[in-house]
Nucleic acid binder design. Structure first.
Length: 730
DNA sequence: GTAGGGTTAG
């Protein structure tokens, strides 16, 4: 008997000597056998259980206590937090306070973490009050946890309104990590005060609180610095973040992997690859360059600096890759326009058994949008739904965009309508979708609806609405929107907005006005702004202005292929063969070659490409066999080949043949002969659809009774029953 | 008690 009492005493004095579940249970049994299980000893056993993460055993014993001591409460609360049972941790804390027990500094870090994960700012603040009253705000761990809470719950976004903090809760939730899912009650306690409704602060709300806590902590450690640096970095206060990193250099606290991976995104944002490389070098010297966090930050930093090869190299040297490392490179490919590689890597990621999370989908779906591959886009959509990410606002916005860019505006609208909340990005995606499909009026009314619902349009939204106006010729409306940017929304017009207005004026035939507008822009016009006017000059057959405009283009960009081709076309259609020849000679001297026009169509899991005039396609005979009678029928119905756009200096008969071989016509024909009657044909083209093909496809849609959708590089054309959705305004 | 990747844009 006495020997077992000695044993108990030794174990109680050194509880860490108990390393296994069976040892803990033996100790518990000894207490029961010797009838010495007091409140204090029970608390010690509970703390031993919780240290071994034996929540169930701890709770069984805990429930037998009538008035549990602080040690028992603390252990249970910490264990709940460790197991991601945040709401139960908080409930226990509240209960402990109600029972009159006074918390000590050991319990606050867990409680604050639970408040953070539950996004319960109200409770967190009252805990803070309690901490101050107990004079525990000097405690290092408590202070660090407090800073983290304020940074997470108040510190996101550079300018944030209090009302918005609460609106964004579902998104913030996903950002806090997947462990939220493990709690029993995901519903955050939201006590939104009326007076907190929509006050916009110019400074992120939380960072001020973070700084106050930081200043109170008397002795700071590397975690304190990392927490406040991350807070500044994520609030867009980059200079303050970097200032603190430098300040660390004056102490004996040295930047570690956490510090670096908070700082690297700043240099991504600044596109400062020199500083980024310095950090990379520091990481190598410290021997932490293989860290997964640093690795993905480096991949991202190099990708954002257009050095995707360096991203690939960092990625290939990573010892371990998690889903974020993979996704950083997938996203990097997308950001650099390497869409096929993005899709390839995404596939590789999946075959490597790394489960793509929500972020991976919102990175890769835009690749489908750019490639206009409805087939892959639909597959990803299915994958998204199976993964349970259907209500993620980032993913939904990218799906809206994907469906509209792949030609299915109705599917885009359906997804948009099913979203619970719309932010400026999702609104912009659907508005741009209608704009590209030529439904300018619908786009404009959606823009108005967005404003009515209190969502402030950003600069991209203005690009979308101006594009919508431009595609249907809403000149007055466009001016209104253009001017409201500065007057109502405090947004500066940027190149894209000027370009959209210039495009609008040009399309509307107000060529001189467009010329003046571009000449007086407050931003230096680029070659592409002038190029849109040049194509308007071509559409409205104004050769004189076109020559002026092309000179402007060549003075900015002497190798602008599009301008050469358009000018050649215009000279050709005016019979000015000499000028055309001169221009072509210039092109040849510069070694410029015309980008081949090509079109592609997806059929049965395969993409079929057609290059203008290329007769090598294995189905060429069948295509011609199909086109011949259709062309004859077209001519009976009044089709006359418009050969004015044909560049080549050849006779009329030959020109007709050349038009015959245009890539979009081949792709449409191929689609029709390889699908069931009535199937919609979707064709994508790399440059603007040709004028004659536009007429021809209208006839083809009528004769074959097919809906034909052609996406060129600027918009969609829906051909149906002999007419096009653009109503020939393009 | 701390860190990394994401949606809309001629």
């Amino acid at each position: 008997m006495s020997s077992s009492k000695t044993l108990i005493r030794t174990l109680i004095q050194n509880p860490t000597r108990i390393k296994s579940k069976s040892q803990a249970k033996q100790l518990h049994a000894q207490f029961i056998r010797t009838q010495s299980l007091s409140h204090t000893s029970a608390s010690i056993v509970i703390s031993i259980y919780t240290n071994l993460k034996l929540l169930h055993e701890a709770l069984l014993l805990f429930k037998t206590l009538e008035s549990p001591p602080v040690l028992a409460w603390k252990s249970v609360i910490r264990c709940f937090t460790d197991q991601s049972l945040f709401s139960r941790a908080l409930a226990s804390f509240v209960e402990m306070r109600a029972s009159g027990r006074c918390p000590d500094h050991n319990v606050f870090p867990s409680v604050l973490k639970s408040c953070t994960m539950m996004m319960d700012l109200r409770l967190g603040e009252s805990v803070h009050g309690c901490i101050v009253r107990l004079g525990m705000d000097c405690d290092l761990y408590t202070g660090n946890a407090l800073m983290n809470m304020y940074a997470k719950l108040l510190g996101m976004g550079s300018k944030i309104s209090v009302g918005k903090v609460f609106d964004e809760m579902p998104q913030r939730m996903s950002r806090l990590g997947s462990c939220c899912v493990a709690t029993e009650s995901v519903e955050p306690v939201m006590n939104c005060d009326e007076d907190l409704e929509a006050e916009t602060c110019t400074m992120p709300l939380g960072i001020d609180s973070v700084r106050k806590v930081f200043e109170v902590i008397p002795r700071k450690d590397v975690v304190s610095y990392n927490t406040i640096i991350a807070g500044y970095a994520q609030s867009g206060m980059y200079e303050d973040a970097l200032r603190l990193v430098r300040e660390m250099g004056t102490t004996d606290i040295k930047p570690d992997a956490f510090t670096l991976s908070s700082v690297l995104p700043i240099f991504s944002e600044y596109v400062d690859v020199i500083k980024g490389k310095e950090i990379h070098g520091y990481a190598i010297r410290k021997g932490i360059d293989a860290d997964v966090y640093i690795g993905s930050s480096l991949v991202d930093m190099y990708a954002k600096s257009a050095r995707i090869e360096d991203s690939e190299r960092v990625f290939s040297h990573l010892a371990r890759r998690d889903s974020i490392s993979w996704n950083s490179l997938v996203a990097g490919y997308v950001q650099n326009g390497r869409y096929n590689e993005a899709l390839r890597l995404f596939r590789q990621m999946v075959t490597t058994k790394v489960r793509p999370g929500p972020v991976a989908f919102s990175s890769v779906i835009p690749a489908c949008a750019h490639l206009a591959t409805l087939r892959l886009g639909k597959q990803l959509h299915g994958y998204v739904l199976r993964g349970g990410f259907g209500s993620n606002i980032f993913i939904s916005s990218s799906l809206v965009d994907m469906y509209s860019k792949c030609g299915n505006i109705n599917a885009a609208r359906k997804i948009f309508d099913r979203m619970n909340v719309h932010d400026e990005v999702s609104w912009t995606a659907i508005i741009m979708g209608y704009a590209l499909h030529g439904h300018g009026h619908e786009a404009v009314s959606l823009f108005e609806e967005m404003k009515e619902q209190g969502v402030k349009p950003n600069k991209v939204a203005f690009v979308a609405v101006l594009t919508a106006c431009s595609h249907v010729g809403l000149v007055d409306e466009a001016w209104g929107y253009f001017n409201s940017m500065t007057k109502v929304y405090g947004l500066n017009q940027e190149l894209e907005h000027y370009a959209a207005v210039a495009d609008l004026l040009g399309r509307a035939g107000k060529l001189e006005e467009a010329y003046d507008f571009i000449s007086k822009m407050r931003v230096e016009p680029t070659g592409s702004v002038w190029s849109t006017l040049l194509s308007s000059c071509s559409v409205h057959k104004n050769l004189e202005l076109a020559e002026k405009v092309s000179e402007k283009i060549f003075s900015i960009d002497s190798e602008n292929m599009g301008a050469y081709v358009l000018m050649c076309n215009m000279y050709a259609s005016n019979g000015r063969w000499k000028e055309m020849a001169k221009l072509r000679l210039k092109m040849r001297k510069k070694g410029l070659r015309k980008k081949p026009a090509c079109s592609w169509i997806e059929l049965k899991n395969k993409t079929h490409g057609f290059v203008s005039g290329d007769r090598s396609h294995p189905n060429m005979d069948r295509i011609n066999e199909f086109l011949k009678p259709v062309m004859e029928q077209m001519e009976k119905e009044g089709y006359v080949a418009d050969t004015s756009g044909v560049l080549h200096d050849v006779d009329e008969e030959h020109k007709r043949e050349l038009l015959f071989g245009h890539s979009e016509r081949l792709a449409v024909a191929f689609g029709i002969i390889n699908t069931e009657p009535g199937t919609t044909i979707r064709v994508t083209k790399n440059i603007r659809i040709c004028r004659d093909c536009h007429v021809a496809i209208k006839f083809i849609s009528k004769i074959t009774e097919r809906e034909i959708i052609v996406r060129d590089n600027s918009r969609f054309h829906h051909f149906n029953r002999g007419s096009c959705s653009c109503l020939d305004y393009w």
